[in-house]
Design a protein around this nucleic acid. Sequence first.
DNA 1: CCATTGATTGTGCATTCTGCGCAATTTCCC
DNA 2: GGGAAATTGCGCAGAATGCACAATCAATGG
Lengths: 159, 159
Amino acid sequence: MPKPERIDPTDARLLLALTEHPRATTVALAEQSGLSRNTVQARLASLDGGAKLRSFERRVDPTALGYPLTAFVTTQVTQRRLDQVAEALAAVPEVLQVHGLSGETDLLVHVVATDADDLYRVAGQILGIPGVERTNTALVMRQLVDYRLTPLLRRAAEQ
Amino acid sequence: MPKPERIDPTDARLLLALTEHPRATTVALAEQSGLSRNTVQARLASLDGGAKLRSFERRVDPTALGYPLTAFVTTQVTQRRLDQVAEALAAVPEVLQVHGLSGETDLLVHVVATDADDLYRVAGQILGIPGVERTNTALVMRQLVDYRLTPLLRRAAEQ
DNA sequence: CCATTGATTGTGCATTCTGCGCAATTTCCC
DNA sequence: GGGAAATTGCGCAGAATGCACAATCAATGG
């Protein structure tokens, strides 16, 4: 059975190389990571094939798309209607991601907006979903630490 | 000043094509998006060069790396020490991202962990940072809506 | 201790792609 | 209407890809 394939040290090295040069060719990656070209080819295939890599969309910057505002909307939901609420949230384009938190009735909704008015509109839309009882919108003012996985990747690369 | 270059409809089409086939060659992208090869080349260069694309690390799945647990730690901080706290948080590998929320003293810390014990340890480490006054850890139980930007990309692609 | 399996490596080759330059449009904006 | 910027088509030398095959190498289990 195909276990949720783990990233081994070799994969980690490759991913670190890719992080520095995302559009690098196979041969370039090979010499940078100290592997043979064939190995890199095989690994890359399994990275894409397996569940080790998430969608490319994650690399697109919403700000550059015209949505410079990011907010997290915590939402309290009637437990019974969790799935319906999730479906309704998925229908809102500005909703990028929804986490179901411990507590069974709390959702963390990641949204973006073009400006303050737009955010207000989106927040209202969420509050209007049947089953949503309470919401609280927190605007992201600043990135104190930008997303990074490199430290963990490095740890994985060193065996 | 170099505007935070926007993604235009052409870019959006390209990005949608890339979302489907991240490792596609330039020519393949050209015919899929209906652009000329030269244009695709130029656009790709400006995507990487400009601030339109975020780091490749975002595509690496922490679960595959051995960190299947995700949690959000809301943190209340002594305002004066915001920067020091941010620095200390950045020193923790399991901290993937830190958002500064409206309210000036509230942080949203995105962390991962190998298991419950590990999460407990990381949470304790955050609470131990000088300047951190209160924390609240919410474990992500389920992805109600997986990260997706495609709806907004499509909107941008249609003019 | 040895056999088997799977991953890695080196090598080779035909095909395809890349990275450029250049000239001709086309598009967009003032 | 005019001018700048973007797009397009074309070509070419060099590089990379995809694939196959055989030889190592490492880990596993009998």
